[in-house]
Design a protein around this nucleic acid. Structure first.
Lengths: 185, 185
DNA sequence: TCCGCTATATATCAATTTGATATATTTTTA
DNA sequence: TAAAAATATATCAAATTGATATATAGCGGA
């Protein structure tokens, strides 16, 4: 699913600007399964306009840059529909710097491993609180609500695993040669 | 963590060729938290050689292309060490076409949603069986074993959620306008 | 036995995406 | 009242993806 298709998905929920689409990826309903920054969103919207998959209306605002609001067309919806049933969705792509660092826990200092784990535990707790709030805004019977539940289940499992194995990770730290003596400043 | 640093990580487990590094990302011990294809691995290894972070030895093989085996240097290990303690690891990057499709379940056919979910359930079961086997090869006390456990916990939670909510997803399918009438061929 | 599929192995490259930077104003926080 | 965060779009070098090319060996099925 490329960035153009993902933008069309966001626009299915209502008209939006590039800035607002970015927020959907960052903290909104797509945040736990989609990615995309300004550098890909703005060019994608330009191409979608050229292809007639979206329309664009400039909303002049007082003392602020004009907001370009995008609206999905019938043709855009057809494109999205086709993309979603084209093939069985491919494997999730996951890139985790945390797991990379923890993989080599035995070559690092217990201090640093503790800091890294504690930061992530705090992050998961915050995220889960936020998502629980969001959940109350949807009807329980909608796809988007079930997908939110999926995200929460995965975050909860990650949190539980880190809490349960925090001491074990710290215990293996510093067991190999040349372990780091101090945590980053 | 860029691809060069990730390659150094793989080489910490032992000398390897580009092909073997790719396998680590695809099915080996890094498969559930790292990404990288030939198109990024080969250029990365060339740059690492130029920078003296790895050495390269060509192993002639009978009737097969020469295998270039890479070995991490002390300088390479220092680089990896520095990268791992540079800052608290950033958020995981997750891109899931499955969740994107399920998010719009109400615009799609129950048939298609069922196929998509069943395919993923089968995938998670296979993956978990494979990982359980791998787990027996490591000592329980190593970072890599704990990280494998993390991956398994996440896959198990995903599997459980899909199994528990399969019927709910199918029930919401086809509730909105213009739902797809048939699954892909 | 022959055909196709999978595995071993490296390499290239167009297209896409990332991540940083630039610009400018308003609103909120300390 | 000064600094920081939020609103808003845009660009671009660098990194990465995904597809393709090139060769050979081995294995299973018709």
């Amino acid at each position: 699913m490329d960035i153009k298709t993902t933008c069309l998905g966001v626009l299915m929920l209502g008209d939006a600007s590039g800035y607002e689409i970015r927020k959907s990826f960052e903290e909104g309903p797509f945040s736990h399964f989609a990615e995309g920054g300004f550098g890909s969103i703005y060019p994608a919207l330009t191409k979608l306009s050229q292809e007639g998959l979206v329309t664009c209306t400039a909303h002049q605002q007082e003392k602020r840059p004009a907001k370009k609001v995008y609206h999905i067309t019938d043709s855009g919806w057809s494109h999205l529909e086709a993309a979603m049933r084209e093939k069985i969705p491919s494997e999730d792509k996951i890139k985790s710097d945390l797991l990379f660092v923890l993989f080599f826990a035995d070559w690092q200092s217990p201090d640093w491993i503790a800091r890294v784990i504690d930061a992530r535990i705090a992050y998961y707790r915050e995220k889960l609180d936020y998502m629980a709030e969001c959940g109350t805004q949807f009807e329980k019977t909608m796809g988007r609500s079930l997908v939110l539940g999926f995200g929460m289940a995965v975050y909860q499992a990650s949190l539980d695993y880190l809490v349960a194995n925090r001491e074990a990770f710290i215990a293996v730290a510093g067991q190999a040669r040349s372990s780091l003596s101090s945590a980053a400043e």
